[in-house]
Amino acid sequence: MSAAKTKAQAIINENAVAVFSKSYCPYCKASKNLLDGLGAKYYLIELDQVDDGSAIQSALADISGQTTVPNIYIGQKHIGGNSDLQAKKGELKSLLTEVGAI
């Protein structure tokens, strides 16, 4: 397994909520705003601000099949991107409570 894939998998495994993002991405901002609005605690990694960001993004494509950001995991389950997260708005609070993120 590549170092990037090991790192990405460790982030997913060790955090109730993991958000793989890019700082300039409007969809990422919308996801972070939604989580912040609920008071969620989440691990955030801005892939455009870390040296191995593109390698991590490639590794995430292997792990989840998703090549875009945001790439969101709650309770080690792949949620998807911003539209997937927004679609779960109704159940999000209970989902986050379940994993201890709020």
Score class of each variant (00 low, 15 high):
C28H: 10
S58Q: 15
G81M: 00
A16T: 06
K93T: 12
C28N: 06
N33V: 10
I72P: 06
I74H: 09
I56L: 10
I102N: 04
A87G: 10
Q66V: 00
N82R: 08
S54W: 11
D36T: 00
V50N: 05
V50T: 07
L35W: 08
L44D: 05
A16R: 02
I63M: 03
V99N: 12
A55Q: 14
Q9Y: 05
D36G: 03
S23E: 07
N71I: 06
A55P: 13
Q57V: 13
G81W: 00
C25Y: 07
A10V: 11
G65H: 06
V17E: 02
K7L: 12
A55N: 08
L85D: 01
Y27E: 02
T68R: 07
N15F: 11
L34R: 05
I79W: 09
I45G: 01
I12N: 00
D84K: 13
A30C: 06
L96C: 09
V99Y: 14
V19R: 02
D36S: 08
A55D: 15
K22L: 07
H78D: 04
P70Q: 01
I56A: 12
S83L: 13
Y42H: 09
V17Q: 05
G75A: 06
K32C: 04
T6S: 13
A101R: 01
D36A: 04
P70R: 05
G75C: 00
I63W: 02
G81I: 01
K93Y: 10
Q86G: 00
L34M: 11
Q76A: 08
N33E: 07
I45V: 13
A61N: 15
V17C: 07
L44R: 06
S31W: 05
P26T: 10
G75R: 08
A101G: 03
D84A: 01
I102R: 06
L35A: 04
A30T: 12
T68C: 09
K77M: 07
P26Y: 11
S23M: 11
K5P: 05
A40Q: 09
V99E: 04
Y43F: 15
N82A: 08
Q49D: 14
A16S: 13
V19S: 01
G65R: 05
M1T: 09
G65A: 07
I11T: 15
G53L: 05
G75Y: 03
K5A: 08
L85Y: 10
K5R: 10
Y43N: 15
K89V: 02
D62H: 09
G90Q: 01
A16F: 03
D48W: 06
V19W: 01
K77V: 10
S54Q: 14
G80Q: 08
K89L: 01
Q86I: 05
D84S: 03
F20E: 12
K29I: 14
A18F: 06
A59R: 00
K77S: 00
L47I: 13
N33W: 04
Y27T: 01
V69I: 14
Q76S: 06
S54R: 15
I74N: 12
K93R: 15
A4E: 01
L60S: 09
D62N: 13
I11L: 15
L38D: 02
I79G: 03
N33A: 05
V50Y: 04
